[in-house]
Simulated scan of single mutants.
Amino acid sequence: MDWRDHGILLTTRRHGETAAIIEVFTQAHGRHAGVVRGGTSRKIAPILQPGAQLDVLWRARLEEHIGTFQVEPLRSRAAAAFSGRLALAGLNSVVALLSFCLPEREPHPAIYKHSEQLMDLLGQDEVWPLAYLLWELALLEELGFGLDLSSCAVTGSTEGLVYVSPKTGRAVSAQGAGEWADRLLPLPPCLRGEGSAPDEEIAQGLLTTGYFLENHLAPALGHKPVPEARTRFVERFTRRL
């Protein structure tokens, strides 16, 4: 069994004295793990940084085996990631969420492409937070927990949508919310793709996507907690407010 693909490196851990086990989110083969022989060496270890774009060749005797990877670097994102604390926190959140959310060996080409585009914006702190928010929204959609923000769940109107139902993920207008408004989540315009947004709006959007990650997606994955890396990124971002 063998295949070749491009992928984003998610995690690396030492295996034995000189090898490493890496987890890569690949374009055609999904989240996939494998052993890199010599992965802790001076030659290979610098390549195996989270977020790196790799060309990988996977081989195994049987498909169910963990197999081995041969890796070649395509694009390092280390310089962009270490350009500032927000960039590093953002990269860590992306790779942690992908490792947390994605089923093993199941292709997700749409979110792969979106993730690659997001990674390429690392270090551009003026556009990264909004791009990251929309990526989280797309991740929820890809995994079956998408939000329906097209019209009010109560009145059917497409006007005045300012809330999201924490139960259904549907938009709610100010008129439709009534006395339940304080129990609903915020729906800033940026969540509906309405252009650029100030940091305050993005922070509101992250509160809403975070709720669905924690209370809808995580329980479906066996009640594992959402990675702390996501919390650290949000905290880092909100310090700008």
Rank of each mutant, 00 (worst) to 15 (best):
T238K: 11
R13P: 03
P219D: 01
P103H: 05
I47S: 03
T209M: 06
E64D: 14
D5T: 05
P225L: 10
K167R: 13
E228M: 11
V35M: 15
A19W: 11
L217P: 14
Y163Q: 03
L98F: 04
D199E: 08
I44T: 15
L185N: 08
K224Y: 13
C152G: 11
L147F: 04
F82S: 10
P198V: 00
Y132F: 12
P129K: 00
W135E: 00
E141H: 10
S157Q: 07
V154N: 03
H108Y: 06
G210K: 09
R236A: 05
K167A: 14
L185D: 02
R240M: 05
K113I: 03
Y163H: 12
A52D: 01
E179I: 10
T238F: 12
G16E: 04
P73S: 14
E194K: 14
H32L: 04
R37K: 14
V162M: 06
G205I: 06
M119K: 02
F100N: 07
S83E: 04
V226T: 03
E159L: 11
L217S: 04
A89V: 00
W3D: 05
E106L: 08
A177Q: 03
Q175D: 13
A79V: 09
V94F: 02
F82A: 07
S99A: 15
T12P: 02
W58V: 00
S150C: 04
S99H: 15
G195A: 08
P73Q: 08
P129E: 04
S173G: 11
G156S: 07
L241C: 13
V172Y: 00
W128E: 04
G90M: 01
Y211T: 00
E64Q: 15
G144V: 05
R192T: 03
E141R: 14
E116K: 13
T231F: 09
H114E: 13
L161A: 09
R105S: 11
N215L: 01
S165M: 05
L217A: 07
A80P: 00
A19S: 14
I21L: 12
L62K: 14
Q27D: 08
Q204S: 08
G7D: 06
V164R: 10
E142D: 14
H114R: 15
I8A: 03
R85Y: 12
G67C: 14
V94A: 03
V56L: 14
A80G: 01
R77E: 06
